[in-house]
Design a protein around this nucleic acid. Structure first.
Lengths: 179, 179
DNA sequence: ATTTTTTATGCATATAAATACGAAATCATA
DNA sequence: TATGATTTCGTATTTATATGCATAAAAAAT
């Protein structure tokens, strides 16, 4: 019994090493790779993506890929040329280092986010509301139906099925200081 | 032979009349209906959409629907709640409308109407929100409790008992172009 | 008024994507 | 550690979507 366990442990360790350093087979890395591929390439099917992952020493099955894409909220959309493309939700895109969002948050323009019922209310520094509302509108169309901005307050109307946590996460991603 | 042709022609005319005035079975109308449904409802599969079309006297097959969605560049995206949703591209403005289109979209400044819970959100061209909100307020007091306008977004608060369809219909009537 | 060309659509099917389920791996913690 | 809970993932399968082909319908050309 003890022998068995030792072997088991060694296998685990070995597997972990393989995963981390050789094949990068763990989930986080894979999601990262998928994001990178989708950000830079036109991919039209999961089979196709599967091949590209394989080329990068990342061997998985279509089933896993389907789950990954669901997790990443990747949408499949038709292109003008008749083909299809998988696209990452916009808030997943790398935030431009010089972008306004960064600056805004860096200056602390977004002060708070609170909820009441289905509605969210963002407080900002005076005068910043419109600018930030514009960012939210454009980077979270899949989470947010629309926003209405006053001077230092933004009313956020989430889509049906979107939770407070979703909005929070989106705000964090969209207005985080670091990529 | 001549008789046959006459009958054929009559059938065509009859069919056309049916299409235009009774059953709205032609392609343009169908695409329009699909847009409206997708704009105001969460639809997760083509089968589902098929049913909704059927309810509106629009009978087609899944094959046609697939082609339609491709044409409209409708993307299928995962939602946070684990389901999927078909979404129109955000730039999806006026479908090539000729003449008697009486759709919401026909009014140049009104871009979209969506719902979340009891609330409606109208997207407009930048700067138009206040003007359109005023129209809504004044022409639909029986449907709408009130509106709040930002720059390009209007929050519409319907009266109790008013359905999404009521609002859609009202908007269509209020903002249809001249015939 | 025919004939020709183009477009639209259904049927059947191929292709693509999602998931139920069980096994393995990982994590938490007593 | 040992144990139970949780997460991950592959296999097989179901479900969903896309398309080749034939035909009907509409439009254009003759």
């Amino acid at each position: 019994m003890i022998l068995y366990f030792e072997i088991y442990k060694k296998c685990c360790t070995f597997a972990r090493n393989i995963n981390n350093y050789t094949f990068m087979k763990n989930k986080r890395n894979r999601l990262q790779i998928i994001s990178e591929i989708l950000r830079s390439t036109v991919v039209g099917s999961q089979e196709e993506l599967l091949k590209m992952l394989s080329e990068r020493q990342c061997e998985v099955t279509q089933a896993t890929l389907s789950r990954d894409l669901k997790l990443l909220k990747v949408a499949k959309t038709p292109l003008s040329n008749g083909a299809y493309k998988y696209i990452l939700p916009s808030y997943n895109k790398p935030l431009p280092t010089t972008g306004n969002s960064n600056t805004l948050i860096a200056h602390g323009a977004v002060l708070s986010l609170e909820f009441s019922g289905q509605l969210g209310v963002v407080k900002t520094k005076p005068g910043y509301a419109s600018a930030i509302a514009w960012d939210i509108d454009n980077k979270a169309t899949d989470h947010v139906l629309g926003t209405i901005a006053g001077d230092d307050t933004i009313l956020v109307i989430p889509r049906e099925g979107i939770t407070r946590e979703d909005i929070l996460e989106m705000m964090n991603l969209t207005f985080s200081e670091k990529e």
